[in-house]
Amino acid sequence: MTDPSKMNKLMLFSIAGIVIACLVIAEIMPHRRTVFHGVVLGASVSCFNIFYMARKIMNIAKSASGERKGRATLGFGFRIATSILAIVLAIEYPHYFNEIAVCASLVTGYFILPIIGFIMVLNEDKHHAK
């Protein structure tokens, strides 16, 4: 099975690609700049949320196997708070960020991560079959 840190690395590269593409397109199409800047903001917050979630899940697994003492939580409230912060930024500064674009791109990482996971598991299965 794959390691979460490998998946995180691939996800970081994917989101970095999306962010760079959006920044380039924002420069090419200045009349749609707020939409692409919104996607950049949402994708960045989503990436941060995924990294935080990975850290929390590793802590839970360590607690379950007895390697770590103390309480472990999923940290869902913190992730919700960062998402709300992003949408507040979009509401406060509509000249820079499009609200709908931020809202839609806040789940970019959550959609990319399972796809990366399935692809990595399929590749491992192919490797074992050989």
Binding site: M1, T2, D3, P4, M7, N49, I50, M53, A54, I57, M58, I60, A61, L74, F76, R79, I80, S83, C103, L106, V107, G109, Y110, F111, L113, P114, G117
Partner: peptide, 17 residues
Amino acid sequence: QTTMYIGVALVEALPII
């Protein structure tokens, strides 16, 4: 741990929206 990671990511997308 990896299975939980993917599962939690799938579950959490909807409440954030």
